[in-house]
């Protein structure tokens, strides 16, 4: 037992370093997502964001689900802007770091729960070949008020009322 304690004491800095490396080397949610771009597509109706999501893929067939997943991810952790529509919104989760901090929650959330918060705008899909890739673009409506409420209720992000 004493020997183990000595060993631990001697190698504690190495153990901490290894733990840090392992934590950051673990696959993040973003690694699962395709390469995508997000921008504002105008003012949505109350409680929603209207965003234009472009997924870069080797195949021309990209599912609505994949685009919707990117839309939710972008709204939560990247925020979006549009010069044309004079829009700028910060990430709904507050900071991209929240993705790492609440990894367990978001791993689970992006399995299926995210599907409740987006809707594709019909007739908005465009497919453009760009070099060896396809750029598949769709306009997506994200129910940001409901998404925010549910994340606050799950204690993942803070609400304005938190602490009062």
């Amino acid at each position: 037992m004493k020997h183990l304690a000595k060993l631990l004491k001697r190698h504690i800095s190495r153990i901490v370093l290894m733990a840090c490396v392992l934590t950051f080397a673990l696959p993040t949610l973003a690694d699962d997502l395709p390469d995508y771009q997000i921008e504002g597509a105008g003012t949505g109706s109350q409680g929603t964001y209207l965003v234009r999501v472009s997924v870069l893929s080797k195949k021309s067939k990209v599912s609505d689900d994949e685009i919707g997943r990117c839309a939710i991810h972008g709204v939560l952790f990247r925020g979006f802007a549009s010069k044309e529509n004079r829009q700028q919104q910060k990430p709904l989760a507050g900071s991209p770091m929240v993705e790492m901090q609440q990894k367990a929650f978001f791993d689970d959330f992006f399995k299926s729960a995210y599907q409740n918060y987006y809707q594709m705008v019909s007739g908005s899909r465009q497919v453009v070949k760009a070099g060896k890739q396809y750029k598949v673009t769709s306009v997506v409506t994200v129910s940001k008020d409901q998404l925010r409420k549910d994340l606050v209720a799950a204690d993942v992000i803070k609400g304005l009322n938190t602490g009062f």
């Binding site: 003012t43 700028q88 919104q89 910060k90 709904l92 940001k144 803070k158 304005l160 938190t162």
Partner: peptide
């Protein structure tokens, strides 16, 4: 449209103020 568009940016700064207060 202007109110809806600008409200989230405003509340996120208000949130930062409340976080600082806490």
């Amino acid at each position: 449209e202007a109110v809806i568009e600008k409200m989230d940016g405003f509340t996120s700064q208000l949130q930062a103020h409340f976080d600082d207060l806490m």
